[in-house]
Amino acid sequence: MNIIVCIKQVPNTTDVKIDSETGRLKREGVESIVNPFDEYAIEEAVRLKEKNPGSKVTVITMGPPQAESVLRDALSKGADEGVLVCDRAFGGADTLATAYALSMAIKHLGNFDVIFCGKQATDGDTAQVGPGIAEMLDIAHVAYVKKINNISDKSITVERLMEDGYDVIESSLPVLMTVVKEINIPRLPSLKGKINSKKAVIKTLTAVDIGADEKRIGLNGSPTQVKKVFTPTQKTVEGEKFVGEPDVVASAIVAKFQEIGIV
């Protein structure tokens, strides 16, 4: 079985601190990590491989040369091959152009049965790239998968997490799934995995390699444009301030609660 996992390099948001004066993010020293939701995608792919001997897991990411590190990370957790889709021409891509580039790269790689993505990336939070890739590859997709019930050569049955429970969905193969946190507990890298990932050769693909239409990649291929970026004027309320001894402020605020009728 050929399994593909699409992953993304994101800033580690748990590291991020805010400059209290400007309200901006302090980005210095923020490390880049595998998008946390993609960790579940990698784990599920590796589990599927372990259950189906002879399978292969290929991880693929689009990004700058530094994004290679997330591929190595995935290799240390059991993926077999890493592919970096990297070209300056991809710069400034929105979700549509990203989905296009990744779908072209996947086509270039050849056969696949299952594609996994995390449900969304923690930096953009759009959740759009996964289904977008499925559309461009003209295959079925199931989003928010929380469990794979069974898989055969031709079809797969999964549970799709919904706001009010879950749907059991059967899909033909090939299929793209975006997975949620509930699906598994990702493993830690093994020593063998680490040593192998260090030695592994990461394949790099450019826009020309994957035969991408230059009109559909990068900024060129992005219908959405960032018009402006701004730090929101924080809703500053002329609020009442409570400062002082804990005993005093606690009774003052509780008195306030009484006043507004919640106690």
Binding site: L188, P189, L191, K194, I195, K198
Partner: peptide
Amino acid sequence: TEEEQMMIETARNVAIEK
């Protein structure tokens, strides 16, 4: 060595996470 450092890292991950 690099591999010795990898052993430490691997062990540290397990120690802290698990």
